[in-house]
């Protein structure tokens, strides 16, 4: 029997799954009793029901950690990807820097002194404009393109022109 390189993670996942299900079934959750009642003795010891204890102290933090890891990967990816090689990539780079600055207190610090009559030059305003119009337009264009693609593929399948999914050419 050949073990995968990351077999340990499979065991951790399965054990975690079984433990959470078992704790929920036997002692229930915050408001609901389980098969063995409310587990008052255990609750008195750890401060809450076993299921809720693991949910509050492990699961919630693990989920938040998973999401937070994005910050590190985005930083690394931005360093490698945002290079002004062409006109289009320069546009993307400039827009990204403006949005990043506008979404911080630094954006306000840099342009807060500009008088209200020229408030369209405030970085938070520029950020709002970029997110509201060009970004939305781009997103919609992608969605419309994808929808048209799905319609085209569906018609090809319905009419029997596209047979590759059946193993044909």
């Amino acid at each position: 029997m050949v073990f995968d390189q990351n077999w340990q993670y499979y065991i951790i996942t399965l054990v975690s799954f079984i433990v959470m299900v078992a704790l929920g079934i036997f002692w229930g959750t915050e408001k609901n009793p389980g098969l063995l009642g409310n587990g008052n003795q255990i609750s008195a010891f750890i401060g809450s029901k076993p299921f809720d204890y693991l949910f509050d102290n492990i699961y919630q933090h693990l989920q938040a950690t998973m999401f937070s890891l994005l910050a590190f990967f985005i930083a690394s990816a931005a360093y490698r990807a945002f290079i002004a090689r062409t006109f289009e990539s320069t546009l993307l780079l400039v827009a990204a820097i403006l949005v990043m600055l506008g979404n911080t207190s630094i954006g306000f610090l840099l342009t807060g002194w500009i008088p209200d009559s020229l408030n369209f030059l405030h970085l938070p305003k520029i950020t709002e404009f970029i997110m509201k119009y060009p970004t939305t337009a781009g997103q919609r264009a992608i969605m419309i393109g994808a929808a048209l693609g799905i319609i085209g593929s569906s018609i090809r399948i319905i009419l029997g022109i596209e047979r590759s999914y059946l193993g044909g050419d």
């Binding site: 985005i74 931005a78 945002f82 600055l101």
Partner: peptide, 23 residues
């Protein structure tokens, strides 16, 4: 958290600029 986010964004911008200068 906004202080942390502001500084993190600034760091990313510095990295991007450094990468472009190197390029």
């Amino acid at each position: 958290g906004m202080d942390a986010q502001s500084l993190a964004h600034l760091i990313i911008i510095v990295f991007i600029l450094t990468a472009n200068i190197n390029f």
